[in-house]
Amino acid sequence: MSKHETINYLEIPSRNLAASKAFFSAVFDWTFTDYGLEYTAFSNAGIDGGFYASDLTASTETGSVLVVFYSHNLEATQIKIEAAGGMIVKPIFSFPGGRRFQFTEPAGSEFAIWSDLTVNESI
């Protein structure tokens, strides 16, 4: 059951739905349900959502919301992202409370991964 007045669903632009699906399936084990040729819904992501066909991308440079994932091991997650065709746009950096990096998935939208664990604490 959906909780009243909480974030319930995300919709993200994709220049290439097939590439977005393949990337997020490979890296994060998301599952997808297609609704026509221009929309695919995802689940198994912590929050449900979908990708819609668009010539635009989500990017912090254009003021877009940044979807941020959590990882117990930034370096291992970065390797998975790069192996699946993602591009690192901001290498791992420290900030008060942890470390993170930002990447684009193959269809061009930007995301981030953060951890409150240091390299030595990673699981």
Rank of each mutant, 00 (worst) to 15 (best):
F23K: 08
A18Q: 15
L56D: 15
F101T: 05
S43I: 09
S94W: 10
Y52A: 01
G108N: 04
I79F: 12
Q102E: 14
G50P: 07
V67S: 07
V27T: 02
S64R: 07
Y35G: 10
V65R: 08
F24M: 11
L66V: 09
G97M: 00
T40A: 09
S71M: 00
P106C: 12
G63M: 09
G49N: 01
Q78N: 01
T31D: 14
M87C: 08
G85W: 09
D48R: 11
I47K: 03
S25E: 15
V27R: 04
T31H: 14
N44S: 13
S54E: 06
Y52P: 06
A22M: 04
S25P: 07
I12M: 08
W30N: 06
D34C: 08
A53Y: 03
V65Q: 13
A41K: 07
G50L: 12
R99D: 12
I47W: 06
A26P: 08
A53I: 05
E38T: 02
F23A: 03
Y70F: 12
K80S: 13
A107L: 00
S109W: 03
A45V: 08
Y39F: 15
K21P: 06
G97V: 03
P13F: 02
F24S: 05
E105F: 00
G50C: 08
P91I: 06
A58K: 01
A84Y: 09
F24Y: 15
T60A: 13
T57W: 09
D48L: 00
T33I: 13
Y35Q: 14
L17E: 11
F69V: 07
Y35P: 06
R100D: 15
T60S: 13
S94K: 14
A26M: 04
F69P: 00
G50S: 02
G108M: 09
T57V: 15
K80I: 01
T62H: 13
S94F: 04
P96L: 06
L74K: 09
F103H: 11
E38N: 13
I47M: 06
E82F: 06
F32C: 09
K21I: 15
Y70D: 13
D29C: 08
T104P: 03
G49E: 09
F51C: 00
G36P: 10
D29G: 13
S54R: 06
F69A: 06
L74M: 11
Y52Q: 01
T31M: 12
G85F: 03
A45N: 04
A41L: 07
S43R: 12
Q102F: 11
I79D: 14
S64M: 08
F93G: 10
I47L: 12
T77P: 10
E75N: 11
D34M: 02
F101W: 04
G63Y: 01
E61L: 01
S20Q: 07
P13A: 09
L66I: 04
F93N: 12
T31Y: 11
F103Y: 13
K80Q: 13
S20L: 05
V89R: 04
G49C: 00
F32D: 10
F95D: 00
G108A: 01
F103W: 10
L74H: 00
M87A: 12
T33V: 14
Y35K: 14
G97R: 03
V67W: 00
L66S: 08
W30G: 04
N16V: 05
K80A: 11
P13I: 04
S25V: 02
V27D: 07
